[in-house]
Design a protein around this nucleic acid. Structure first.
Lengths: 158, 158
DNA sequence: AAAAATTTGTTGCATTTACAACAATATTAT
DNA sequence: ATAATATTGTTGTAAATGCAACAAATTTTT
């Protein structure tokens, strides 16, 4: 007798899509609220971008866009802001024989990043207090597998 | 000796936030692309709303907003559209002695919903093919637990 | 009883976002 | 060699989103 695979989605609010989206939204909102409350001088998106640059030295804009989950246009705009604040520097370089704009974090940016990380540490510690490191790790692995399995079906225009 | 709990976040792209957001984004984009490709006459958000109404008869706008993950304003706008298409009806009722606008799906809406579900079935089946029902279920449970644990820290304004 | 706060939905606006079009350059195909 | 395609970043624009302000009604507080 053949095992019948039930459909993965019956109704939206029972689906994996709903759980994923709601959890992600909640996390994002929490981040935004913490940033607003602490009055740090950066939006959470700017902080995320700065952090990502700090551990991806010499990355180009397009590759950065993929990491921070924004399109090229908006990535450029965020970088304009960070550059204007003197937190990053941008320079022309080549990648695969093509001209690209690469960037790196400045001394000032590094200090800002350190400062913000310290200020936020305690706030974020609360949010995952009831989860062990292992549980979080397992969840991340599961999400990555899930993502990999659908990645091929999605046309990314970045 | 005390066990030292490592911080849950070192860098954004290594964090659970990143994995959640990227997975959710990918899923949403896939949904949008399928809807656009199949030319179904509804956006994916409208479909999701219609589906949610269909299994929550007599729900009011605010409660619906929480389910479809939009704020009250945008939920109202989506409902205007669906009502304009004749897929739902809206009526005044009371809830806790307060006047609210409730809604229900129409015959036409039900037919549309059925039609779209059939058309999309095959497309979504592919995307989770490499996952067993049990794995998906486990992931959903994990996400729900995670969500519950942070829910209290987030101020929802809906 | 009066005042303050809460619930619900709508309107308007400012921000964010996505997407297409473009320019410049390099690679690949014919 | 020429044309077609691909990569990268910017600009412009339309749509989506969130948020604050408002109105109407009810509940809670004083």
């Amino acid at each position: 007798m053949q095992k019948i695979q039930k459909l993965p989605v019956k109704h939206f609010t029972d689906s994996i899509y709903y759980d994923l989206e709601q959890t992600a939204r909640l996390m994002k909102k929490l981040g935004n609220q913490v940033f607003e409350k602490l009055n740090l001088g950066l939006t959470s998106d700017e902080y995320i971008t700065l952090d990502t640059i700090s551990c991806n030295a010499g990355i180009c804009q397009r590759d950065l866009a993929k990491l921070i989950l924004k399109d090229r246009a908006n990535t450029g705009r965020i970088l304009d802001t960070l550059e204007g604040m003197g937190l990053i520097t941008r320079f022309i370089d080549t990648k695969n024989n093509r001209l690209v704009r690469k960037m790196g974090i400045t001394e000032k940016g590094l200090k800002k990043l350190q400062e913000l990380s310290n200020k936020m540490e305690v706030h974020f510690r609360n949010t995952t207090a009831s989860f062990s490191e292992e549980e979080i790790e397992a969840l991340q692995q599961s999400l990555k597998r899930f993502r990999n399995s659908i990645e091929e079906f999605v046309k990314m225009n970045i």
